[in-house]
Structure formats: C-alpha cells, structure tokens
C-alpha cells in the first residue's frame, strides 16, 4: 500500500473497536459492555461506515470474558443487529491463560477475522501480556484451521520484525495493524508511521490505531498513505479535548475525512475482496 493507493482512490476499510477489555463504564458511561449494548453500537457504526467490527466480550458487570460462550452471545447479537459487516474477534488477554486466548476463535460460525498480538506488551506497573512466539504460532495455526484472517497487531517495531518473519506463512494479502501510543506501543508521531510503511513489502495491507488524542491525526495520515483505519472507544474515549465521544461519532468522522480526501469508504463486500476474506 502506498501513496499511489491514495491517489488512486482505493477504498478505506474502517474498523470500529467498540469496547475493548481495558476500561469500562467507570471511564465512559456509555461504553458498550453487554451483548445488547455492543450490538446496538455495532449497528450504528455499520451505518456510519464501518465494515469491520472488532469485538471483545465482557461479563454483565463489564469485567473481561474470554469464553467461547460469551463471544457467541456477542457475535450472535451483533449479527442480528447488522447487515453484512465483518466480525473480528480479539484474542488479546493480558494476564489470561494461553488456553483461554483461543476461545474467541471457536464460535459458530467462526469470525472472519481475529487479532493476533505479535509480542510482549506491558500493562500497568506489574503486568505484561507476554504473547510468546509459541502462543502466537498456536493462535495463528488455529486461525488457519478455521479460515480466520489474522490481523497482526504490531504494538512496536520489534513486533514488525516478528510479523515480517512469518509473512510467507500468511494468506494474501498479509494484514498488519500498527499501534501508536504510550508504554510499549510505538511513540505516536507521523515519522514513525512513515518508517513503518516504508518497511513494508509490496502487497501488504496495513491498518492504523492511534490511542487517545493520536487517533485522529494518525488515522488521517494512514488514509493519505494508502492504509486503513481503526477508530472507536476501545482506543479513544474523546471526540475532542474534554468531550466524550460515541463509537458512531468516531466512525462517522473517519468516514467523512476519507471521503473528503478522495478515498471512498469500503463496503463489507469491498473489504472482503481487498483483504481476501471468504465470508461466512
């Protein structure tokens, strides 16, 4: 993906990260947590231009859930509420046992996509999501068995090395997601996104996450560089300084900017074609 893709008006895949698993209603009173709330947000985001819905599951009190059963409830509710969007299940889970990390892949039907964290990531002062190579390979293997497209989560440059090392094992096109923020994610600066994009072999599709106030500028830069974008309350709670956002607002803004810049927002069908998804 290149600047030429921007000039050529390639459609932009907008992913909506609706809820995440880190913060909850203590941080944003309208953050969707229950299957019903997540489904309502998903429908609004699909209408606003999102073709991929990144899903986490939670207990009724907002705490994290990893079981296949809870993901099934979320996925069923989202499918009932949406038309044709691509479902992408998170396999992230700081502190959770490796066996639980596989459970989101085992819904019926399987999700079309799933996240694949490519290496260690610090949380708080004393936790590390280890994401060992063994776990990455194990999750990737099950994704292949279940025809699930992995989105490789590149939290920092070391994870780019890890991703490039398995590029030949990935179905075309490889899909990498670059994350920018604090801690063990990449320092959020446009030059760092430029470096990432320049390091990509031809034929690789990329997506961009900017945490907090970096969501708007870095996703906009991704549009200019021929990439795709992920927005939503998992990554950023604010529409502007001091003003809380909704998922729908963040998706609508990303879609509006893409259109203004001359790149149409990808429909679910266009997303499936660009990312090599085979539907469900």
């Amino acid at each position: 993906m290149t600047y030429d893709d921007y000039l050529g008006g390639k459609p932009v895949v907008v992913t909506a990260a609706l809820t995440g698993g880190v913060h909850g209603k203590e941080a944003h009173p309208d953050l969707p947590e229950t299957p019903e709330e997540i489904a309502a947000a998903a429908a609004a985001c699909e209408d606003a231009g999102a073709s991929v819905l990144h899903l986490h599951a939670r207990r009724d009190n907002g705490e994290r859930a990893f079981s296949t059963e809870r993901f099934q409830e979320v996925a069923d509710a989202v499918r009932d509420a949406t038309d044709d969007a691509v479902l992408q299940h998170s396999t992230g889970g700081t502190g959770a046992p490796d066996a639980l990390r596989h459970e989101p892949l085992r819904t019926d039907p399987a999700p079309e996509m799933a996240s694949l964290d490519m290496g260690p990531l610090n949380r708080y002062d004393r936790l590390t999501s280890e994401n060992t190579r063994e776990l990455v390979a194990s999750l990737h293997s099950e994704m292949r068995e279940r025809d699930i497209k992995p989105e490789l989560e590149v939290f920092n440059d070391g994870h780019l090395n890890e991703s490039l090392a398995i590029l030949d094992d990935l179905d075309e096109p490889p899909y990498l997601n670059f994350l920018f923020g604090g801690g063990t994610t990449s320092p959020p600066h446009p030059r760092n996104l430029m470096n990432r994009v320049e390091a990509l072999p031809e034929g690789v599709e990329f997506n961009v996450i900017g945490f907090g106030p970096h969501q708007l500028p870095l996703t906009t830069q991704s549009i200019l560089l021929g990439g795709h974008v992920r927005v939503g309350l998992e990554d950023n709670r604010y529409y502007e300084e001091g003003g809380l956002a909704s998922n729908e607002q963040l998706v609508a803004r990303a879609a509006r900017i893409a259109e203004e810049l001359g790149r149409p927002v990808a429909t679910p069908a266009e997303t499936r074609e660009m990312l090599g998804l085979r539907g469900r």
Binding site: G24, E26, E63, R64, G95, P97, Y124
Partner: peptide
C-alpha cells in the same frame, strides 16, 4: 477510593493466577 478498570478487576479478584499482593502497585 475509585472504581477499577475491568482489566485490573481480574487482579483484584485473583483470577487466572494473578495475585493482588504482587501484581497490583
């Protein structure tokens, strides 16, 4: 004296082998 994030609540509840004494600052 505050609500805790859902991820941190797993430490508080000692789920998945997490230990509040050693894993919470």
């Amino acid at each position: 004296e505050s609500f805790v994030q859902p991820m941190r609540a797993d430490i508080c509840n000692a789920r998945y082998g997490l230990d509040p004494e050693t894993d919470c600052e």
